[in-house]
Design a protein around this nucleic acid. Structure first.
Length: 417
DNA sequence: TGTCCACTGGAAGGGAGGGCTT
DNA sequence: AAGCCCTCCCTTCCAGTGGACA
């Protein structure tokens, strides 16, 4: 018994006595709203300026907020609306803020239902997840909102997702709702990271939604550094962060279109790696490791969710790579692909289609495909693998659909043809 | 200089699946 | 339930092409 106990004690003690790195990891999560938002004063001011009519009892304009991912749109809007709620209480003006993430709540019906249910405590009305006719939910919504005098601010985050999926009629009804209400006033804040989606909108909806626009430019490396510094102070114990760590995270994230989310991820993962190693300090080396891990994780996720034929195609390239036959051209890859399909008992796609799939894999960064002319020997793509065969195989090992490919070798496949 | 390879990538259209209306 | 439209994935067809080679 003693041996086992010793063992258990030691594995836990190793962690118990390891120096603690994180004081409060929550601070580094995307969902965390800090008390201060560095380098967003301008946007905060603009939003405050747009919303201030509320305090004078006037309806504020609708706002359209856009900027790339990780530029602080959501966090800033949440921050400003929260401040507005606080201050309006002081002035005794009732304000309701309803935040809806349209990536999750992604249909006309669900958005309306969500708004109605926001008031269920006071109205006693609850709309079920499915079942009611949409126009009935809309009627209920008007009734519930209009129950008393107040301002209702509806924040539609990732609004482009909603429009792409369900069209813009919901915006049409929401932007016109004020004409049908007698007591309450509604304003909409739409948040999007895709500027192009405005093209899909009906002109009337667009003009009404973007009465005001607030733009969030990407952060540069210096700004990211400030953001990280502020969070790092709360997230880590004093002295655990090497001086170079924050600037490096900032620089790496700045390279990726100034994404603060990425910067925070880097810092958090670097900390986690250091913690697991039992290191007493987070160093530059941990950041590089974190960068690698994040990149690998996203790549694995991409490969995991590839459609079947792309997976088979990728495996054809992996096999060629292991046989030292890369770069290969489209024809070579296609014939291996066909034999793999045969093995899986799947109808192969045409070469034309596979050519497009090759381009898709290239765009995803899984492979490199370059069009080259080999003169007398035609024009084709030169295809190279951009990930390790080991990684692909590891993923496929847990994939029912393609697992059986792992047992194959190129020479055996070739003999079959 | 022209030929010709091994494709590329555009165009058109088929058909399955989903959502909406009737 | 039926009809319709739209989108996505795919096939078929084909004109076009950069450059090694005769």
């Amino acid at each position: 018994m003693g041996d086992r106990d010793d063992y258990l004690t030691s594995i836990f003690e190793k962690y118990l006595h390891a120096k603690k790195i994180f004081k409060n990891k929550e601070v580094l999560r995307h969902s965390y709203t800090p008390k201060e938002l560095p380098h967003r004063h301008e946007q905060i001011d603009e939003l405050a300026h747009i919303l201030v009519p509320v305090l004078r009892g006037e309806t504020p304009s609708n706002v359209f907020v856009y900027g790339k991912t990780g530029t602080g749109k959501t966090v800033t809007v949440k921050f400003v609306t929260e401040e507005l709620k606080k201050i309006s209480e002081k002035y005794n003006i009732p304000v309701e803020v309803i935040y809806i993430n349209c990536e999750i709540v992604d249909t006309h019906y669900r958005v309306l239902a969500r708004i109605v249910n926001h008031f269920k405590a006071e109205s006693g009305v609850e709309v079920p997840l499915v079942g009611w006719p949409t126009d009935e939910v809309y009627a209920k919504l008007k009734e519930v909102i209009d129950a008393r005098e107040r301002f209702v601010i509806i924040v539609l985050d990732e609004i482009d997702k909603l429009i792409k999926k369900s069209g813009d009629d919901i915006l049409y009804s929401l932007t016109r709702i004020n004409t049908e209400l007698s007591r309450a006033k509604v304003s909409i804040i739409g948040i999007s990271n895709d500027l192009k989606f405005k093209e899909y909108l009906d002109a009337r909806v667009l003009s009404s939604l973007s009465e005001e626009e607030v733009v969030f430019p990407p952060y540069d490396a210096n700004q990211l550094r400030d953001i990280l510094m502020q969070r790092a102070k709360e997230a880590f114990y004093e002295g655990v962060l090497d001086d170079a760590v924050v600037p490096l995270c900032a620089a790496l994230a700045a390279r990726e279109h100034g994404d603060a989310r990425r910067a925070l991820d880097l810092l958090r993962v670097a900390g986690e790696i250091a913690e697991r190693e039992g290191a007493s300090k987070v160093t530059e080396r941990h950041v590089w490791k974190a960068q690698e891990k994040i990149e690998q994780d996203t790549m694995e996720e991409v490969i995991k969710t590839l459609p079947l034929h792309s997976k088979v195609l990728l495996y054809a390239i992996v096999m060629l790579d292991e046989n030292g036959e890369l770069p290969a051209n489209t024809g070579d890859v296609y014939s291996v692909y066909k034999s793999l399909c045969d093995h899986l008992d799947v109808e192969p796609l045409t070469q034309r289609r596979v050519s497009d799939l090759i381009n898709e894999l290239d765009m995803l960064g899984i492979i490199n495909a370059k069009v080259v002319s080999k003169g007398r020997y035609g024009r084709t793509k030169e295809i190279r693998l951009n990930v390790t065969p080991y990684m692909v195989k590891n993923i496929y090992r847990h994939d029912e659909q393609v697992r059986s490919l792992l047992t194959l070798t190129l020479s055996k496949q070739r003999r079959l043809f």
